[in-house]
């Protein structure tokens, strides 16, 4: 019979927590960068100008359809060769997940924007608002409300996908767990503890998200 022993994990919890910190930093950076990148890609794709739409579409499709692990390798191993730059695990990870989440966010933004009734932009244009003003003041506020659940889902997915960065030795939670497992010979306990941390963080974020969603619904402004 296997005897569970979590004592070594408690003794080394600072290692796991440091990894968790790195995971959260990377997720936050990828979110903070991915949202504007996604919006820019979506607007480019919807712009009606082929010069903007085609490259934006290409970026979106490439990053949505290729394995994130390969993308990470492109940035970590490929980019330094092409650009002759120094690449750190953190920078490669941040770039990969900013653009990758941007590609997914772009499709969410696009779906949200086109879901807003055409009459909304017509009404805004009819009082003389410019295209940009219409997008910023009328379309996006309504689109973002509708997109929120999908954005939450994608953000959770993002946090879990960042575990791939262990392969380029960025010291995220899973990387630290791996180190600890080798050190303590207790892989089952260590990875279970790591999974528990992911579970706790993501559950907490989901609950916060659900609360925000409820509050938006309560304000009762969505129905027409």
């Amino acid at each position: 019979m296997y005897r569970w022993d979590f004592a070594p994990i408690w003794a080394n919890s600072d290692l796991l927590l440091a990894g968790l910190g790195n995971t959260l930093v990377l997720t936050a950076v990828a979110l903070a960068g991915g949202l504007p990148v996604g919006l820019a890609l979506a607007l480019a794709r919807l712009s009606g100008s082929r010069l903007l739409a085609a490259p934006a579409g290409l970026v979106i499709e490439v990053f949505r359809t290729t394995p994130p692990l390969v993308q990470l390798f492109w940035f970590y191993f490929g980019l330094p060769i092409i650009l002759k730059v120094e690449m750190t695990p953190y920078l490669a990870a941040a770039l990969t997940f900013t653009i990758q989440s941007g590609a997914f966010f772009a499709e969410i933004f696009r779906a949200g924007i086109v879901s807003v009734d055409k009459g909304q932009s017509e009404a805004a244009r009819a009082i003389g608002m410019s295209k940009a003003q219409t997008m910023r003041r009328i379309i996006l506020p309504q689109a973002v409300k509708r997109m929120f659940p999908a954005m939450m889902e994608r953000s959770i997915e993002l946090m879990k996908t960042t575990t791939l960065v262990a392969t380029v030795s960025y010291a995220d939670l899973l990387y630290q767990a791996n180190e600890l497992a080798q050190k303590t010979f207790r892989p089952l306990e260590v990875f279970t503890a790591a999974a528990l941390l992911y579970f706790l963080i993501i559950t907490l974020v989901s609950m916060l998200g659900a609360r925000v969603e409820r509050r938006m619904a309560q304000s009762g402004e969505m129905a027409r």
Binding site: D117, G119, Q120, E122, A123, A124, A126, I127, G128, M129, Q133, R137, I138, P141, Q142, K145, E221, M222, A223, R224
Partner: peptide, 26 residues
């Protein structure tokens, strides 16, 4: 000015906000 069949009010703004919008932005 134009008034539409489907009203096309901005649902995320109050009645006052709807009327103010063009005054502010345009």
């Amino acid at each position: 000015g134009m008034v539409f069949q489907q009203f096309n009010l901005f649902p995320h703004m109050t009645a006052l906000g709807n009327v103010m919008e063009g005054l502010l932005t345009v």
